[in-house]
Design a binder for these strands. Structure first.
Length: 448
RNA sequence: CGGAGCGUGGCGCAGCCUGGUAGCGCACUUGCUUCGGGAGCAAGGGGUCGCAGGUUCAAAUCCUGCCGCUCCGACCA
């Protein structure tokens, strides 16, 4: 992408409504603009990040055997009356009426709708297990939205729903999502820790929140230090096999959010030098809730013995839009964002220090073409802005690699190659920079 | 909803107390000079001062009501 034709409004100063660093940087880097309280427009750069996050989530869901579909944002109130949640949900649910004065709502979650779809189309245990998911906008009319996209009212969420014949099978479905989540967040460069969690309005008795540590986290979390350094299950993990040992390993050590925290247990189970007490951000939440929806909504199949049984269900959420903010909270420095390669909006920033100069233009065009053809995502700053401004903007938007092309270096046939992550700079021959970048970038696209 | 604060050009702010020509920095446009880490000079463009009432000869400024936004608390992916 050529910057001269792109839409990337960067801000030199910090808008005063932004209090936390990820919100400030998202506004300054031209990723989002606030439409109203807790509701955001995603500008081109932000959308690219959102898509990358969504695609990683998608790949890992698919790997774990979940199947993607897409449900609407607007739902019928009648469906929610079946489960009893129309009255139970409270004011977070945005209730609206259509022109015929039918009660509708903007979906805060989709248990009811997916249960309806499933019950209307599945009759036999032979069609089990199934896990269906979608990535769709949700609306929860929070009392107080804050922290930018981290706690907006409108947010993009991946929500998966599992259907099983027995509780044991349901547990296996739960485990598949548990392992998928460990991989999903690790691929974004995040160290997530599953923690015993409250089930809230979703219901059920088995639940984990996936937490990353961040100073601006919304809740206090407690855990064993070793959990924050554990190895993530590899890509060739057999999701059809027994995942219980993996889950057991991750849940054997103490980890809890403040609402579940038991200080006495914490002190008894975790040696003082292994105790971690910090702020955390919830980026995923999984639940197993049995027949909470299938029973009242009559989502039943015939088992092998001919009996009709209500399905065992679970639901599994990932805050896709929240992750964009959460990753920035975890990955930034004084100059701006420092994107991990897998979620970076572009992988390489190409800086033409003297746009209009025949030689630098030619060298940049060549690099831009070759990198693009090699499948590397390049943002080419071909504007005639001064070098200082170009450097500052590139650092702000945080692309992992920068290629600096100017007359000085070109005299020796060289360009400067910089890593945003560690700030390392090196002079590289013009002829080998593409090869070097292609291998560096592709190596870091897959973190696990 | 309880408490606190803020709404003045795209962004950041001053002016309000003590009513009288709407200002500053950045950004933007044009020209010249500059050009390897946010340049200099010069000339420009852009504002219903959140909205509505009221007081007054006169309101960004004083009064009343409303709206929006932010922070702390209860709620949450």
């Amino acid at each position: 992408m050529r910057l001269s034709r792109y839409f990337l409004p960067v801000l030199r100063e910090t808008p005063k409504e932004a209090e936390i660093v990820s919100h400030q940087l998202m506004l300054r880097a031209g990723m989002v603009r606030q439409a109203s309280a807790g509701i955001y427009s995603w500008l081109p750069l932000g959308l690219r990040v959102l898509d990358k996050i969504g695609n990683i989530v998608r790949e890992e869901q698919n790997r774990a055997g979940a199947i993607e579909l897409l449900m609407p944002t607007i739902q019928s109130a009648d469906l929610w009356r079946e489960s009893g949640r129309y009255d139970a949900y409270g004011k977070e649910m945005l209730r609206i009426q259509d022109r015929h004065e039918r009660d509708m709502l903007f979906g805060p979650t989709n248990e009811e709708l997916i249960t309806q779809i499933f019950r209307d189309n599945v009759r036999s245990y032979r069609d089990l297990p199934r896990n269906l998911y979608h990535i769709q906008w949700k609306f929860r009319d929070e009392i107080r939205p804050r922290f930018g996209v981290m706690r907006g009212r409108e947010f993009l969420m991946k929500d998966a729903y599992s259907f099983d014949l027995t509780a044991e099978d349901g547990r296996r479905s739960y485990n598949r999502m548990f392992v998928a989540y460990l991989r999903t967040f690790a691929r974004m460069g995040l160290k997530s820790v599953p923690m015993a969690a409250d089930t809230g309005p979703i219901g059920g008795d088995l639940s984990h929140e996936f937490i990353i540590l961040a100073e601006t986290g919304e809740s206090q979390v407690f855990g064993h230090r070793d959990l924050f350094e554990g190895d993530v299950p590899p890509a060739d993990t057999d999701f059809e096999g027994d995942l219980q040992p993996i889950v057991d390993r991750w849940t054997s050590l103490y980890a809890a959010t403040d609402e579940q925290h038991d200080a006495a247990r914490f002190d008894a189970e975790v040696p003082a030098d292994k105790q971690v007490s910090a702020r955390g951000i919830e980026i995923g939440h999984i639940f197993f809730f049995g027949t909470k929806y299938s029973e009242p909504m009559n989502c039943k199949v015939q088992g092998p013995d001919g009996s009709v049984v209500a399905l065992q269900m679970g639901s599994y959420g990932v805050g896709v839009s929240r992750l964009a903010g959460a990753i920035i909270e975890a990955c930034h420095d004084d100059a701006g964002i420092v994107w991990p390669v897998p979620v970076a909006p572009f992988e390489v920033g190409l800086l033409n220090l003297k746009a209009g100069d025949t030689e630098t233009d030619a060298a940049c065009e060549r690099l831009y073409g070759e990198l693009t053809n090699a499948g590397v995502e390049v943002l080419y700053d071909d504007t005639d802005e001064r070098p200082g401004g170009k450097f500052a903007s590139m650092d702000l938007i945080g692309l992992p690699y920068q290629v600096v092309v100017g007359p000085k270096g070109l005299k020796g046939g060289e360009v400067e190659l910089k890593s945003r992550q560690d700030g390392a700079k090196s002079s590289v021959p013009l002829d080998s920079v593409v090869q070097s970048l292609v291998s560096d970038v592709s190596e870091r696209r897959l973190l696990v």
